[in-house]
Design a protein around this nucleic acid. Structure first.
Length: 562
RNA sequence: GUCCCUGUAGCUUAAUUGGAUAAAGCGGCUCCCUUCUAAGGAGUAGACUGCAGGUUCAAUUCCUGCCAGGGACACCA
C-alpha cells in the first residue's frame, strides 16, 4: 500500500522517536497524502518544524525520486505528497488482482471478539429501537470478520425474570374466558400492558404475579410450558424480521441459560471479598461510588447485574473472548461501567477488552423519546414493510418493464437497504430522529444511491466482454481520483476495527459512489477507444467489487439491476 | 442534587479523534436525457461550530464557567 510505503520512507529519515501518521487530506491542494509529523517532532526536539519538514522532503525525494510527482512543504510544517501516475497505475493493478479480497488485512493478530447485539426480549415485539443495536452489531460483526478476526455474534435474550410472572398471570386470566391459541406477540404485549396497569391499584394482582414467577423459577410444569410457548411465539414472529434484515447469530444465550449459574457468581464474589452485604442485599461497591452494583436482592433474588457477570465469565471461558463488545444504548453507560469494573475486580477479566459500543436513541419527529406506552409504539416490522412498499412504487415507476418477481426482489433489497443505510451512515453515538421521509429517502446520500451506482456499473460490465488491460491508459484526473479512493478502502476498514464506528464505511462508500458517478458521466467507457475502454472497464470492475464488498459489510445487498 | 452524553447551513448529518479555506445530503435557485439506467450529473446561494473565557504554532475537537436538550443514579431489565 502506498501509505505504508510513505511511512517507511519517512521513518528512515527521522527515526522511531515518534509514530508517523499519514492522512488523506480532504482538500486536493494538500496532496494525495499528508503528514504533520514534522510539527510533532519539532515540539519534542525543540527544533524548527519547517526545517524538519524540509529534510523529510529532501531525504524522501533522494531515496525514491520516481515515486513522487512532487512533495511540498507548507507552513507551519506540513509535508504534502503527490505520488506519480505510474505508482497509482501499478497500485491499481494490485487492487484489481485482489478482486473481492481488497481491503482484507493480512498478518494481523487474530482475536476472538464477542459481539453482544440485538438483545431482544421474549414476548415483546421488536421496536424501532432494537433496529440500531441489530444493524450496528451486524455491521461490526461483518467488518471484524472480514478483517481477519473471529467474530462471535451473541444475542443476549431477555427471557427470564419478573415480567414473566406478570405475563403468565395475565395469560392464565385470559385463558379462563377465551382460547388463546393464536395469540400474537402484539397480543402478549397488550396483555402485559393491561395487567401492569391494573396491578398498580390492586395488590392482589401483584401477589399473583409474584407467585407465578416463583412457580416458574421452581420449574413448575404448567408455567414452564406457558413460558416455552411465549418463546416459540416470539421466535416465530421475529423470524420474519430477521429474514428481512438478514441477521444471523452464532448464539442466542439468554437470561434463562445463565440462571443456574447465578448462585455461584454471588458466592464467588463474596469469597473473593469483592461483594459485601449492605441493607440486606449483596452488592459490589465500585471505587468510591455511592451507588452499588446489586447482585442479590434482600429477598434472595438475582438481578440482571448477576446475569451479566455470569455472561462475561461464560464468554471468557467458553468463547475464549479477547474482546467483548456490547452494542447497547447510551442509557446503559452507567450500568455497563459498573459491570466492567465488577468483573475486573472479581478477576474474571484481566487483559481482555470490554467495550460499550453505545448508540443514541431513536427519537420521534419532534425529537422526543419514542415511547411504547403512549400509543407511539412503532413496530419494526411495519417500518420495514413500509420501506419495501415505497421502494416498490419507485421500481414500478422507473422500471415498468421488469417482471413482477424481479420488481419485488429489488424493492426488498432497496427498501431494507435504505433503512439500514440511514442508520449506519450516522455517528452511532448521537440520537437520531425517526423520520419516514428521511429514512426512506431514495435520493442523495442514501442506501439506494449506492445500490444504484453499483447496478449501473454492473449494467456497463454486462454489455462488454472482458479482456486484459494495461493500466497506463488510465491517466485522466477522475480516474486517478478513483484509484486513490480505492486505495483508501483498507484504511477505512482498519479504522473501524479500532474505533467501531461503521459510519466511516458508509461515508467512504458514498464518496466512492460520487466519484464513480461523476467519472462515467464525463468519460465514455463502452464507446472509448479500444485500449482505454479495456482499462476503464477494469476500473469499473474494481469499483463495483469494493462497492459490493462494502455494502455487504454493512449488511446491505447490492442489486445487479434496479 | 450528583454524574454522564449531546449542541455544527432552514432541516438531517460529516469532519480521518488536535490540523490547513468546516464537508455533504435534503429543501431553494440555474443548467444537462439523439453516450453506456435522470434513484444520475454540473453549478449556485446558505455557518460568528449554543455562549464566554483558557491551553496550543494550530480548537468543532482538550480545560473551566454558564445556557439549552437528553439520559443514568439501591433491590426493574
Amino acid at each position: 500500500m502506498i501509505k505504508t510505503k510513505i511511512i517507511d520512507l519517512i521513518k528512515k529519515t527521522i527515526g522511531n522517536d515518534i509514530e508517523v501518521e499519514i492522512s488523506i487530506p480532504g482538500n486536493e491542494q494538500f496532496g494525495h497524502y499528508s503528514t504533520n509529523v514534522a510539527l510533532k517532532l519539532a515540539k519534542i526536539r525543540g527544533e524548527n518544524p519547517m526545517k524538519i519538514a524540509e529534510s523529510i522532503k529532501y531525504e524522501v525525494l533522494s531515496t525514491k525520486p520516481n515515486f513522487f510527482e512532487k512533495i511540498e512543504i507548507v507552513p507551519p510544517g506540513f509535508v504534502n505528497f503527490w505520488v506519480s501516475e505510474k505508482v497509482l497505475q501499478n497500485e491499481f493493478e494490485n487492487i484489481y488482482k485482489s478482486g473481492g479480497k481488497w481491503g482484507k488485512s493480512k498478518n494481523k493478530i487474530k482475536k476472538n471478539i464477542v459481539i453482544d447485539y440485538c438483545g431482544i426480549n421474549i414476548a415483546k415485539p421488536m421496536s424501532i429501537g432494537h433496529l440500531r443495536s441489530t444493524i450496528i452489531g451486524q455491521a461490526l460483526y461483518n467488518i471484524l470478520k472480514f478483517s481477519g478476526h473471529k467474530a462471535i455474534g451473541d444475542s443476549h435474550l431477555g427471557d427470564w425474570g419478573k415480567q414473566f410472572g406478570v405475563l403468565i398471570a395475565a395469560y392464565k386470566e385470559k385463558q379462563k374466558d377465551k382460547k388463546l391459541k393464536d395469540i400474537s406477540l402484539e397480543g402478549l404485549m397488550e396483555l402485559y400492558v393491561d395487567y401492569t396497569a391494573r396491578m398498580k391499584n390492586d395488590s392482589k394482582l401483584e401477589d399473583i404475579a409474584k407467585e407465578e414467577v416463583k412457580k416458574l423459577q421452581s420449574k413448575n410444569k404448567e408455567n414452564l410450558k406457558i413460558w416455552k410457548k411465549f418463546r416459540s411465539i416470539t421466535f416465530k414472529e421475529l423470524k420474519n424480521i430477521f429474514n428481512l434484515l438478514g441477521v444471523k447469530f452464532d448464539h442466542q444465550l439468554g437470561e434463562s441459560f445463565y440462571n443456574p449459574m447465578l448462585g455461584d457468581i454471588v458466592s464467588e464474589a463474596l469469597r473473593k471479598k469483592v461483594a459485601v452485604k449492605s441493607e440486606g442485599a449483596i452488592v459490589i461497591f465500585i471505587d468510591d461510588d455511592k451507588t452499588p452494583f446489586i447482585i442479590q436482592k434482600s429477598d434472595g433474588a438475582y438481578l440482571y447485574a448477576t446475569t451479566d457477570i455470569a455472561t462475561v465469565k461464560y464468554r471468557v471461558n467458553k468463547f475464549k473472548a479477547d474482546s467483548i463488545l456490547y452494542v447497547v444504548g447510551n442509557e446503559q453507560t452507567f450500568h455497563l461501567s459498573q459491570l466492567f469494573n465488577a468483573v475486573k475486580k472479581m478477576g474474571i477479566i484481566k487483559n481482555q477488552e470490554m467495550a460499550h459500543i453505545k448508540f443514541g436513541l431513536v427519537l420521534g419527529e419532534d425529537m422526543k423519546k419514542l415511547s411504547t406506552r403512549g400509543g407511539k409504539h412503532i413496530s419494526l416490522e411495519d417500518v420495514l414493510k413500509e420501506a419495501i412498499i415505497r421502494a416498490k412504487k419507485i421500481v414500478e415507476e422507473k422500471n415498468p418493464k421488469l417482471i413482477l418477481k424481479e420488481k419485488e426482489k429489488i424493492a426488498k433489497i432497496v427498501g431494507i437497504g435504505a433503512v439500514k443505510y440511514n442508520d449506519l451512515s450516522q455517528n452511532r453515538q448521537s440520537d437520531i430522529a425517526f423520520q419516514w421521509d428521511k429514512m426512506l429517502n431514495f435520493e442523495g446520500n442514501s442506501g439506494p444511491y449506492l445500490q444504484y451506482t453499483y447496478a449501473r456499473l454492473k449494467s456497463i460490465l454486462r454489455k462488454s466482454g472482458f479482456k486484459k488491460f494495461n493500466s497506463k491508459y488510465l491517466n485522466e484526473k477522475t480516474e486517478m481520483d478513483l484509484i486513490l479512493k480505492l486505495e483508501e478502502f483498507p484504511l477505512v476498514i482498519e479504522r473501524i476495527t479500532i474505533n467501531y464506528f461503521p459510519h466511516y464505511l458508509a461515508d467512504y462508500l458514498f464518496e466512492l459512489a460520487k466519484l464513480t458517478n461523476s467519472f462515467y458521466q464525463s468519460l465514455p467507457v463502452l464507446k472509448a477507444e479500444k485500449e482505454i475502454k479495456k482499462a476503464r472497464l477494469a476500473l469499473i470492475k474494481a469499483v463495483a467489487n469494493v462497492l459490493k464488498t462494502g455494502l455487504n459489510l454493512l449488511g446491505i445487498e447490492a442489486p445487479e439491476k434496479m
